[in-house]
Structures are given as C-alpha cells and as structure tokens.
Nucleic acid binder design. Sequence first.
DNA 1: CTAAAGCCTAAACCCACTGCAGGGTCAACA
DNA 2: TGTTGACCCTGCAGTGGGTTTAGGCTTTAG
Lengths: 136, 136
Amino acid sequence: MDEVLTIGQLAQRAGISVSAIRFYEQKGLIDGPPRNRSGYRTYPLKMIEQVRFIKNCRDLGFPLRSVTELLKLCYPEGDEIECAMVQERIQRQHELVLKQFEELNRRRAKLERLLEACPCEGGWPEECDFIRIMLD
Amino acid sequence: MDEVLTIGQLAQRAGISVSAIRFYEQKGLIDGPPRNRSGYRTYPLKMIEQVRFIKNCRDLGFPLRSVTELLKLCYPEGDEIECAMVQERIQRQHELVLKQFEELNRRRAKLERLLEACPCEGGWPEECDFIRIMLD
DNA sequence: CTAAAGCCTAAACCCACTGCAGGGTCAACA
DNA sequence: TGTTGACCCTGCAGTGGGTTTAGGCTTTAG
C-alpha cells in the first residue's frame, strides 16, 4: 500500500520542494531515510508532519538553526515537551517580527513621501525634489 | 585641506562600512577612485552623496541591480534626469513593500496565535496545542 | 622608535536554498 | 519488447549583499 513515500511525494504533501528536503537532510534537520534497492529515499508517512513542521517554522521566519532547536524541543526523544522553552523562542521571534514591522513601515512611509515629492507628470524635473528626500 | 577622503572617512560620513564600499566598487556601482602613492583610494567629497544615495536606495529595499539603474537615472551624464522612469521604480518598490507587509502581518498574527495557544505557565503540556497550530 | 590604527588584495564564509550536469530507474503504453 | 517521459541519484556551482579572515604594507600619535 501507501506506507512509504518517495521524496517527490513527500515534497508535494508537505508543500515544499524536493531539493529543500535533500538540503534539510544534508543539514541534519531530517534523518537520512532508508533507501530502496535502487538508492531511492523511502519515507514513512509520519515524515509529512515533520517536514510540515519545518516548513511552518520557516514561514514564521525562524532560521534553520532555530528550527533545529524547535524540532528537538517539540519532538523530544522520550521526554516531555518543554513548553516554556518553545514559548520563549516564539516570544523572541515575535519581538523580531515587530521590529521588522517598524522597519518596513518606515520604508513604506519614505517610498510614499517619494511618490508625493515628484509631481512630474510629463517631465518637469526642476520642480521635483526626490533626490533631496533620497539623501534624507 | 579636506578635499579628498580615505575610504574609512568616506564610509563614516556616508554611514556604511568600508568593506561595503569596496564591494560596491567591485560590483561597478562606484567608479574606482584615484589612488595615492601607496595605493590608498582617494575619494573626492562629492562621493559622500553618491554613497549615501546608494545606502538610501538599499534602505528602501532596492536590490543592487536596481540601484545601478537608479544611479544612471538620477545622476545621468549630460542628460536631464528622467522622473517618469524613477517614479515607476519607486511605485513598483512600493507595491512590493505592501506585499511584504501583508506577509509579515500574517507571520505576526500566527505568532500571536501561538503565544495565546500555550497557557502552560509552569508546564502543563497536555493543555497546549501549539503544535496543532504550527502544522496549520 | 614603536604601537596602534588604517589601508591593500584575494579568497572564504554566511544563509537557504535552486539549478545544472551527467547519470540511473521506473511505469505505462504501443 | 522497446521506448518515452517522469522520476530519482550525487555533487557542485550560483544567488545576493555583503562580512570576515589572512597576510602584508603605511601612516600617525606618542
């Protein structure tokens, strides 16, 4: 039946690229799976969740280094999951995202100032001072 | 007097790193300046504005490829500055930034959902379902 | 005179992948 | 049975925007 997956099937079901999966294996986020007699990787179904977990961490902006740690924390070997540690990572990531937000907001505001600063419809450069704004 | 600058002085006055200036020269954004008898780069004062222009473009999120084009458009050789072209780049960058904004907003919202989802103060992992949220 | 700071080049490193070259394998269809 | 096309394998190069390092020369202040 359908108890193992090729790398392509895993990729599709996890919503990620084949080469990204190989990359994660190379970087040690994913264990190298068993191979069939031709050397093809054969994944158990539960790998879908693991890979989706990685993908979702990435979507949240965590770097791979942190994803590795989050994997250890959330899928520990034998132990209980440690919420406090995970929560702390999420908190810090949230703070980071808020900072990026402010930066992006400044960027947006400045672009909008630049758009307003240039009233040159057909080209009257003498009235236009976006270079002054560009240079702050 | 102060009519030329070393690379370090230029870097400081433009608010950028020394290695970034050398990098921009290597990539062709900046002309290689004259050298003194020991091979040190000697920049005219007007380079401060050029480098600040590049820095501000980068702060707006333009990739170096676009900065090169913006430099040509805003500091043309002999011709008049072409506002319409510049304005178009800025418009497109603005649209890009708005998209990034939405993405960052989704990221923030999900992180906040994760923070709410885990009420484990001292550790009651059985009540915590952030993994479910992590996996969508 | 000497030490620190600053400059030079070339090359390696960072991140998170993607793409390519040059193969092997597998399923379906004629 | 052949063959076509989709898949898989490895290993390496490339991306962007720089930073860091190594190894060496110059300048400046004390």
